[in-house]
Amino acid sequence: MVRLEGVGLCYGRDAETGPEVLRDITLAIPAAGFRWLLGPSGAGKSSLLRLLHAAVRPSRGRLEVLGTDVGGASRRALPRLRRRIGVVHQDFRLLRHLSAYDNVALPLRIAGRPEGQIRADVGEVLRWVGLADKMEVHPARLSGGEQQRVAIARAVIGRPQLLLADEPTGNLDDRQSERLMQMLTELNRLGTTVVVATHNDALVRRHPAPALLLEGGRLQAAA
């Protein structure tokens, strides 16, 4: 499902020789696995999630996601892979000029799904995250928590095989965080592989699962 062997990542022009943000990462996550991704700020959690999302290619080593060799795949092959992965970004990355409905519908429209199916699915997911009455509202007029829920709805709308979440509870209260966790657990139970990066220790304690601990760009433990 997800396999990294000696993966290193450098940003910028000298990707071959520059300082590595991630070093010698070797790990494997089985299909329908759940992993917490833990570590202090700047440890490389977001970079690892970007790698798993095929938003960057590894500078070194071998990275395989959902059966695709991300380092060796052609540019044409990567969009198809990304459509099978849902991502919740720390900064939401919503399109400000689109309504909540259109933001959530975007992955399905990119995938070329018929509009009738999109209408049904988006309505259902927005109801699920409690935003049924805010479908036509633009992100600027939504609270931080509401924007985060739109981002979550967008990440799960395509029923991804791999779900990556970067601090998904950062702007949610405890009740909403619990609800999100129930949602993620449910998706995981249905077969989605889930990786959640978080600083929320309480949440991790309440939902015990294997964790990947990053420090200074290195994997300290894969419990």
């Binding site: 969009p79 459509r83 099978r84 992965i85 990355r93 919503l94 992955p107 990119i110």
Partner: peptide
């Protein structure tokens, strides 16, 4: 953002 959501170059 659209690229990350899986839009191809052609799209």
């Amino acid at each position: 953002i659209v690229h990350d959501l899986g839009a191809s170059d052609g799209y």
